[in-house]
């Protein structure tokens, strides 16, 4: 729950003159931590419920890595990969994944016109396009969601709705409150097809 001792709690204070985030260092670290085994060699996931990270907003990646490392977002498979990351390594990893070309997953299903239309009709009033921007490419801590894996999007939306996940605040919990599983499926399909 809460670590008491000073043990392992010494802050990794950045050395003065630290360089800004470095995508090349991040690439080496991603290789070392084997991120590609789950997230795809080029950051485009081919595995159910595992998000693609290629072309993601760097601030979003940094935020999530910190939440994993600090034990504030509990996704067991991310526990070991995020443990012990310094802040600089977090920023390097974020720069690396942000620099990879964004692409839909190879196994993306064909568009279902009915589900797409239903999802689109929901996305408008929910104002997804304000924070995530009209093209759903995100900004700052708000993730790029267009062409993300549909299964992962649905899983995430359910987690927000059911209060099993929070961002840096409760915005998404409020947005998806009360959506049915069918609504979420349509929304996920629409976003995945964008």
């Amino acid at each position: 729950m809460m670590l008491a001792g000073g043990l392992a709690l010494a802050l990794a204070l950045p050395a003065s003159g630290t360089l800004a985030a470095d995508a090349a260092r991040g690439a080496a670290l991603a290789e070392e931590r084997n991120c590609g085994a789950c997230h795809g060699a080029r950051g485009v996931s081919a595995i159910e419920n595992i998000p693609s990270l290629a072309g993601q907003q760097p601030e979003f990646i940094a935020l999530q890595l910190v939440l994993f490392r600090e034990g504030l977002r509990d996704v067991p498979p991310m526990e070991a990969p995020s443990s012990g990351l310094t802040d600089e390594q977090v920023e390097d990893l974020a720069a690396h994944f942000a620099s990879l070309p964004h692409a839909p997953p190879e196994d993306r299903a064909p568009r279902n016109a009915e589900a797409f239309a239903r999802g689109e009709a929901l996305a408008g009033p929910l104002r997804c396009g304000i924070c995530h921007r009209a093209d759903l490419s995100g900004q700052n801590q708000v993730p790029h969601i267009a062409a993300q894996r549909e299964d992962f999007l649905a899983e995430s939306l359910r987690a927000y709705r059911d209060d099993k996940r929070r961002g840096s605040d409760t915005q998404m919990n409020g947005v998806v409150q009360g959506l049915s599983d069918a609504d979420i499926a349509a929304l996920a399909h629409y976003v995945a097809q964008r």
Partner: peptide, 25 residues
């Protein structure tokens, strides 16, 4: 994290640490 098997493990999003407190929102 060196084991690709890690991603074959359960990936269901479990209750976060915060759930030790009453549900937030």
């Amino acid at each position: 994290w060196r084991l690709p098997l890690a991603c074959a493990l359960t990936l269901a999003i479990s209750l976060p640490a915060l759930a030790q407190q009453p549900a937030p929102a």
